[in-house]
Structures are given as C-alpha cells and as structure tokens.
Design a protein around this nucleic acid. Structure first.
Lengths: 226, 226
DNA sequence: CCCACGGCTGAGCCTGATCTGAACAGCGCA
DNA sequence: TGCGCTGTTCAGATCAGGCTCAGCCGTGGG
C-alpha cells in the first residue's frame, strides 16, 4: 500500500515516515500544500495523511481541489487539538477520517487500516480468496489453513492483489503501489516476485493476462484449461 | 506495560509511582487534568489510573474527552470519596474500573492486571503460548514447567509479547510500551534483549519478520491445560 | 513454419537489517 | 565502599531479501 504523507513539521514527518515504513507502507512525503497537490495528482496513492496547517496552500484547500477534480482517495486529516472549526471544515471538504494531534502512531495505523479496508469495500478484518487468507493486523497469510512464510515484498504484493482480487492488475499499477517514487520502471522484479509468490501459494492462484497484467482469481474454479 | 498515573497528591503519586515501577510498569505521571489529557493523547498507554479530583480539568471530563475522541485504553478511576454519584458518573464517562481511597496497593495492582488482561481479550489469569507460561501475579515465567530466571526488562518484553502473541510487533511498538517517555529511539536494546530472551526461552519461539518486527509464534502444535 | 514479443526462471550479487559478544555505566545491597 | 546484577552501547559478523541479468519458453501473427 502506498501512502502520501503531507506534513510540514520535520520531526513529526520523520517519525511518521518511519512508523509507516515499519508498518509496510511505501511512503512519499510532501512538506507543503503545493507539493502535496502535485504528488496527489500525479501518483496513485491508496490513502493520504494530510496535515491541515501547511505552507503555501492550506490543507483544506488542497483537499477541496482534489475532491473537485474527482479524486476519491481516502484522506485522513491531522490537526492540532482543540480546533473544532477545523474539524468541521475538514469533513466538509471531504475528509474520511480525522485525528487530533498529538496522537500515537498505533492509532494512526489502526485508522489507516480501517480506511483502506473501507475504501476497498471489504468488511471483515481478514482478507480471503479461495483458500487464501491474509490478516493485515498480524501481517500473516495462509493457504488452506497452512501458514505462509512470506517476505516483506511478497506479503505486500499478495496484500495488494487480495484487496483487488478478480481485477486485472497491470505491472505498472503494482510497481506504483508497492514502491515509492524513485523506482526503476523497467525492471522485472514484479515478474520475479509474482513467480515466487506462485511458488508459495500455488501457481493457479495468480492468472497472467498477456499484455495486461495479473489477476488473482477469486474462485478455486478448476475449469480453466481445457 | 506502560501506565499513565494521573494524581495530584504529591505523596500518593510518589508512592504509587514507586509501587507501579516495582511491579514492572513503565510509569508516566500527570499532576493535573490538562497534562493528563495531553499525555493520554500523545503516548500509547496500556492502562490509565485516573484520580477524579484534579486541578484545571476534572478527571471525569478528561475521561469523557478521551472517550469522545475514540480512545479505548482501559481506565481505572480513583476517588477520595466513596460517593455513589462519583462512581456512577465515572462509569458513565467510560471508566472500566473504580477504586476508592484509601486502598491497598495490592488491590490496585490486581485490578490493573485484570484490566490489562481483559483489554487484550484474554480470559485466564496466566498467559501461555506453546510450552511458555507467564503468571503476571507472581511475575514469574516458565518453559515446559521449567522456571525461567528473567531480568526485569526481559520479563516485561516477554509479557508484552505474550499479551500480543501471533501478531507482528514492531521494534517501535516495543519501545513505546516498555519504556516511558524519554528514551533514545535509535538504540538497539530491543534487539539485544530479544536475543537474550531467545537464549532463555529457545530461539524458535520468537520469529523475526524482516523489516517489520518480531512475532511470538502462538502454537507449537499442542493444546494447553490450566 | 518462423519470428518477435512477452513472460518466466534460476543464479548470483549487494545492501541493509539483524544478531552477537564484549565492554561499560548505573544502582542497589551488603 | 565494593560487588554483582542490569541495562545500554558499539563494532563487527552474519544473513536474508530484493534486484539484475541472461537465457528459455510459449504464443500469436504472418
């Protein structure tokens, strides 16, 4: 999952970036409203953490512009405590959740998880697909009850695919969601990792759609190759 | 485990802080409602001990604010008066337990243990995981019946991990729950202690999840009696 | 049938994360 | 005050995961 962190305070930024990184997110950081707006327009984030007090362009304005432009990425707003009016205008502008500073990282992480879950339209806390199960909280996955031993990237890949099971996902999309900005686009890591993942979860789970990308097949339907 | 102690009486504060410290908690102290609210918002406590008669902001108000903000940390309320009305308003405000002054430290500790247990969704008084057992009352742990000789930090580390067995726990989270406010975040003590703990409980018990943290593996296959 | 294009794979390198042993400092207890 | 135990730091050693590369394979179009 890829997250845009918009926060001007250097200390807090560093701290949050680290925490989000620890939690397995690919994090991009914007320090002012202009940069935030630019990045939000350019890159496909799964969720955005937006501080309201920003240089150049105010956070609420940025959010309003995104929403006017039709962007639906879930946004969690941060603000200094006590600012009631901020809270109201933030929600009015289209925020999905709200967190008052100071807060502790765990709560932020919990709320982000909730947002991501909600935005994917999935209700339960654990994702499942065929015999596959994945519990984001424990960072753990299993096939038919058999626990999987996945590396960090394998896990993130599977996570993303499970959140979008049944849809064809292009290599580009995967790269964009699994890595942060600077990544060598013409590498074949994705292929390599899809391969490794197949080896672990069973090669029939991930279908390759030539020229388009991959699809995690929701059903265990055997009827494919005839 | 980390506890926030909110108490304005200097003597009692000192005494409780010492008792809690002895019991293996990392303790932060707030002397008035404002500080309490701030700390409670900022730091991830496992439990909060809240005196009702406070300067600046009343205890019940602080609690109400926390609950309104969605904080779910278990709170134990202290009050001087045995007054029923206090008790009721305390519970109405979202307290999880209640203790009337004067009380025996023992009772406080017992109630805190109960709160912690409940909040982690654990039923029995002793924690167990594979051949591992830990009894918070006696502050004692064992592997396969063999008693362990743990230092304070080792014990606290194990305790926290057993309360959250099966979940991946990041180094950051461990630091935040084992230490109080001021602690050098980029030290490798955690790694060192995980290492020492492994040496004592068997190295296969704590799994390291690269880039994410550690996990206490819940099952070795056999079921537990108790 | 042949070619070109994607996609797949195994091997191996490199980097950064993790582990470890040893030494040092603080503190309580005798 | 001296001893012993704890927690912390540091500097290598170690190791695993991620990335690249090069070559193979299957497919579809001519």
């Amino acid at each position: 999952m890829r997250v845009l962190l918009v926060e001007d305070d250097a200390d807090l930024s560093r701290q949050l970036k680290m925490a989000l990184g620890d939690a397995g997110y690919a994090v991009d950081h914007a320090a002012d409203g202009e940069e935030a707006h630019y990045l939000g327009d350019t890159e496909p984030y799964d969720v955005i953490v937006l501080d309201l007090g920003l240089p150049k362009i105010d956070g609420v304005s940025v959010l309003e512009r995104w929403r006017r432009e039709g962007k639906t990425t879930p946004v969690l707003i941060l603000t200094a405590r006590g600012a009631w009016s901020d809270k109201v205008s933030g929600f009015d502008a289209g925020a999905d959740d709200y967190l008052t500073k100071p807060f502790h990282t765990e709560e932020l992480l919990a709320r982000l998880r909730a947002l991501l879950r909600r935005s994917a339209g999935i209700a339960s806390a654990t994702l499942s697909c065929g015999g596959l199960r994945l519990d984001p909280r424990a960072a753990r996955a299993s096939v038919n009850g058999e626990p999987l031993r996945l590396t960090s990237l394998e896990y993130r890949l599977l996570h993303y695919m499970m959140m979008h099971q049944g849809r064809v996902i292009s290599r580009t999309e995967l790269v964009e969601h699994l890595y942060d900005q600077d990544f060598d686009r013409d590498s074949n890591t994705i292929e390599v990792f899809v391969g490794r993942l197949r080896k672990k979860i069973g090669s029939d789970r991930i279908e390759t759609v030539r020229g388009l990308g991959y699809r995690l097949t929701p059903l265990t339907g055997e009827s494919e190759a005839a």
